[in-house]
Amino acid sequence: MDIYRVLKRPILTEKTNYQVDTLHTYSFEVDVRATKYDVRRAVEALFDVKVQDVNVIRIHDTARRFGRYYGKQSGYKKALVRLAPGDSISFFEGV
């Protein structure tokens, strides 16, 4: 898979910040068709880092109701990427 289509966005929340600090793991929303290997290749190529582990999680669609209307919130695939010690991805610096 084209590495420029794998990563959709970094997931930035308090939880992921915490994971960066303690586990050295960065979270991304990725294309649902991407595999762990795709993610590894993409991250290594785009951010110039060494990836140690990739875990992926499928977040399911969730049913949502807006008054009378039923709908769904799309799910996505989330990749947790652990980097080699010393490497880092600087989305934003400073806390």
Binding site: E14, F92, G94, V95
Partner: peptide
């Protein structure tokens, strides 16, 4: 994704 006052 952040509680009030907690965003970096």
């Amino acid at each position: 994704g952040y509680r009030p006052g907690k965003a970096p």
